[in-house]
Amino acid sequence: MPIVEAHVLEGYAPEAKRRLVAALTDAVRFVVPAPDEAITVMLHEHAAANYARGGVTRSPAPALPDPAELVLAYLRAMEARDLATAQGMLGDGFAMVFPGTGPMTTLAELVAWAKDRYRFVTKTYEAVEAFPAGGAAVVYTRGTLAGEWPDGTAFSGIRFIDRFEVTGGLITRQDVWNDLGEVRPR
């Protein structure tokens, strides 16, 4: 029965602590074949006034946003064509690759590329999965696409998978796979 103890400075919101406990439980389950109820995680909070590093009293760093929620907010903004909001969620060096494209680095490039492919697209999500990977968070979304072709004909039920990298609370990469090209009218 694995027991994990973590020490944190006071000041984190209950939701941030809940996310930390869930992430630590997932980390244990990734290595040890234990059911959730067999994994104990204990957070020990310490007053910031009783903590110093390098002889300097420190405050806790703010918790990063939930990467899955960040990605879903970005996708909602993109679907609503609120490009200014979506842009604010992107980090330095952002790049995205869609089927049949090389890397694009601006949302304007994506909009220009997509205008001849479809009028609009909406997504229905079957799953959103997030996990840490080498200093970044990786978020996968998968489900189906619906929308309209340029001629106004509706489409639906088209599979997609999006993979995002989130670093420092901002999206730095998006890779997209879907079957639009397979069913697109010629």
Results as ranks from 00 to 15, higher is better:
I3E: 14
V4A: 11
V4D: 09
E5F: 09
H7F: 11
E10A: 15
A16E: 13
K17P: 04
R19F: 06
A22D: 15
A23E: 14
V28Y: 07
F30A: 13
V31Y: 10
D36T: 12
V41I: 14
E45P: 09
H46L: 07
A48G: 11
N50K: 15
N50Q: 10
Y51D: 13
A52L: 03
R53Y: 00
R53D: 04
G54W: 02
G55L: 06
G55D: 13
A63K: 00
D66V: 09
D66R: 14
D66P: 01
E69W: 00
E69P: 00
L70P: 02
L70W: 00
L72E: 13
A73E: 02
Y74N: 01
L75A: 00
L75H: 07
E79P: 00
T85M: 00
A86N: 03
Q87Y: 05
D92R: 10
F98V: 14
P99K: 11
G100H: 11
G100Y: 07
T101K: 12
T101C: 00
L107P: 05
A108V: 05
L110R: 15
L110D: 05
W113K: 11
W113D: 10
A114M: 14
R117T: 08
Y118G: 02
Y118V: 05
F120D: 11
T122P: 00
T122Q: 04
K123V: 01
T124W: 09
Y125W: 04
A127N: 09
V128A: 06
A130N: 01
F131L: 07
G134L: 02
G135E: 12
V138S: 05
V139N: 09
Y140G: 03
Y140A: 01
R142I: 06
E148A: 08
W149N: 01
F155P: 02
S156L: 02
R159S: 15
D162M: 12
R163T: 13
E165V: 12
V166K: 04
G168N: 14
I171F: 02
I171H: 12
R173F: 10
V176M: 10
W177A: 08
V183F: 07
R184C: 05
P185M: 11
R186E: 15
R186G: 14
